[in-house]
């Protein structure tokens, strides 16, 4: 009896599909059997197992990217019911139906829900979001970090380069070269580190060129959208302060 009840309950999806990076997107509707505690990834897996549209016609399985399934890797970002977020933590029970799935169009679409987030990794290289410690001899241990500082810096280190903040930002688009909130927050993280701080000017300089921090228009969508709750607008304002100070120091030759 219980099984019969479960079988009749279904979940409806409207998925934006795109066959190649250049081709036109189109929508397809799916209706799959409901299971308890489903998330968007397990629903996509169900479609992959039985790739039939809601009218019964066969179609190519929907492509998506996912990895950790616990909201730490950033791979499964997509636009779910209009909001960019992680598909793995999007529980079907908490979503309005039909569930609309779209790729994050701020990035180049590879196929269906798969996007290319390469620009984010390029941005991390541009701002040198690492701590250089390599040398020809042992430099010994670096300076210690205060525990109070470590606690807020840890929050910034939660960034998983998922791209949700760039998708939410009205200034990340084809007409604008803005680097996006994620990389700016990483500059704050690495500049907060006692060893990373030794190269802080290099990172600030990178943000003071075309498409750097000045691209922020303070819409503050990023901080409202970040799945990890990173205080992105605080990071941007803090780096605004640091770049302003750096600008005047350079002018005055300090």
């Amino acid at each position: 009896m219980a099984e019969a009840t479960v079988a009749t309950k279904t979940v409806k999806f409207i998925i934006t599909r795109q066959d190649t990076p250049e081709s036109q997107p189109y929508n397809e509707e799916f209706e799959i059997p409901y299971r308890a505690n489903m998330n968007v990834i397990s629903a996509l897996m169900e479609i992959q197992r039985n790739p039939k549209k809601s009218d019964g016609a066969s179609t190519a399985p929907v492509c998506w990217e996912s990895n950790c399934l616990e909201e730490v890797c950033g791979a499964c970002s997509m636009v779910i019911n209009g909001k960019p977020r992680q598909a793995c933590s999007a529980l079907i029970d908490k979503l309005e139906q039909p569930v609309k799935l779209e790729p994050m169009r701020t990035f180049p679409v590879v196929r269906d829900l798969v996007i290319n987030r390469e620009r984010m990794f390029g941005a991390l290289k541009r701002v040198k979001a690492w701590i250089p410690i390599d040398g020809t001899y042992d430099l010994g241990p670096g300076p210690r970090m205060a525990e109070t500082k470590r606690q807020w810096a840890y929050e910034l280190s939660k960034c998983m380069t998922c791209g949700v903040c760039l998708e939410a930002c009205p200034n990340v688009n084809d007409r604008n070269s803005f680097i996006g909130p994620a990389a700016i927050s990483q500059v704050r993280l690495f500049n907060a580190h006692p060893t990373g701080e030794m190269n802080k000017e290099e990172r600030l300089d990178a943000l003071m060129t075309d498409g750097g921090i000045e691209g922020c228009g303070n819409s503050q969508n990023c901080v409202r959208s970040c799945p990890k709750g990173i205080p992105l607008t605080t990071s941007i304002a803090a780096i605004n302060k640091d770049t302003t100070k750096h600008l005047f120091k350079k002018w005055l030759g300090v």
Partner: peptide, 13 residues
């Protein structure tokens, strides 16, 4: 409001 953020005067929420 935006000026105060862009010049790093108001930082926290």
């Amino acid at each position: 409001w935006a000026f105060l953020i862009s010049w790093g005067i108001t930082i926290g929420p």
